[in-house]
């Protein structure tokens, strides 16, 4: 068994491959995540952050290289195996929440369990338990469009956690939230990581949000430019280190 829960080797993504408009968005990236890590991925616009996270998490298909999740190469799986694999291993949180507007919050949260044919009583217990933890238990009968952004994102987190995944993949999870809700969400993610050992890989452009992580990866033009470990730094020191890496990039541009 690999020591990494997630590993990318020579990960390359080319859009419009084999056409005159071919564009290589990721260039042979090597990347590893150990169990229980909380990783932030940052980078300027167009650096390939979302492409990277989509390709390491089965949402998109990479052009070449390898991605292993819990030692299994994701591209070798059939379409049927992939569904089961996602259920057992991955939970997703998106900037746009991606909840079904046709369904209530309860049904949205229950969806992964229902697809996996989990017993109804177990689904009910698990949904209510999580909703209480995320403080949306009184809203379960409502549809997403009747809730605030913060409430919708909490529901999305419940859906991501309901199947006890080993890895949470979050793409700009605070992108549509105000500062209070963003801080609240980050506390929730940190608690999940520290107390329940959930591995989290998160893309964000916000240094404050990244300061909740244990390691941050800075992408630039489809390469990993730098990796910074929080180690023994306080959150404030870590925050300054993150700002420094981001502003170094801006300083380089200004100097040119």
């Amino acid at each position: 068994m690999s020591e990494y829960v997630l590993e990318a080797k020579k990960l390359t993504k080319i859009y419009n491959a084999n056409t005159p408009n071919a564009f290589e968005a990721l260039h042979a990236i090597d990347f590893q995540v150990k169990e229980g890590e909380f990783i932030g991925i940052m980078g300027p616009s167009g650096s390939g952050k979302s492409t990277f996270i989509n390709n390491i998490s089965t949402i998109d298909t990479y052009t070449s290289g390898f991605v292993y999740i819990n030692g299994i190469e994701t591209r070798r799986m059939t379409a049927n195996q992939m569904g089961r694999f996602r259920y057992e291993n991955l939970g997703f949180i998106f900037q746009d929440f991606n909840l079904l507007d046709t369904h209530t919050l309860y049904e949205n949260i229950a969806l992964p369990l229902s697809l996996a044919h989990v017993d109804k009583a177990v689904i009910d217990q698990r949904v209510k338990e999580l909703a209480a933890q995320m403080k949306i238990d009184t809203l379960l009968h409502k549809r997403p469009n009747e809730c605030s952004g913060g409430q919708r994102q909490r529901a999305a987190i419940c859906r991501a956690l309901v199947n006890h995944p080993r890895i949470i993949v979050a793409d700009e999870p605070t992108g549509n939230l105000d500062s209070a809700n963003s801080a609240e969400l980050m506390k929730i993610l940190r608690r999940l990581n520290e107390e329940e050992g959930v591995t989290i890989v998160m893309v964000t452009h916000d240094p404050l949000v990244t300061s909740y992580t244990s390691r941050f990866v800075y992408l630039k033009d489809g390469y990993i430019e730098s990796v910074t470990e929080r180690g023994n730094m306080t959150q404030e020191e870590y925050f300054h280190a993150i700002v420094e890496v981001n502003s170094a990039e801006s300083r380089e541009v200004l100097a040119e």
Binding site: I59, E88, N98, L115, A116
Partner: peptide, 17 residues
């Protein structure tokens, strides 16, 4: 399509979809 994507990331298999 967006609804199907949500089902996919929620663990729907090809058969279920």
């Amino acid at each position: 399509a967006p609804e199907l994507a949500v089902r996919l990331i929620s663990g729907a298999t090809y058969t279920q979809l």
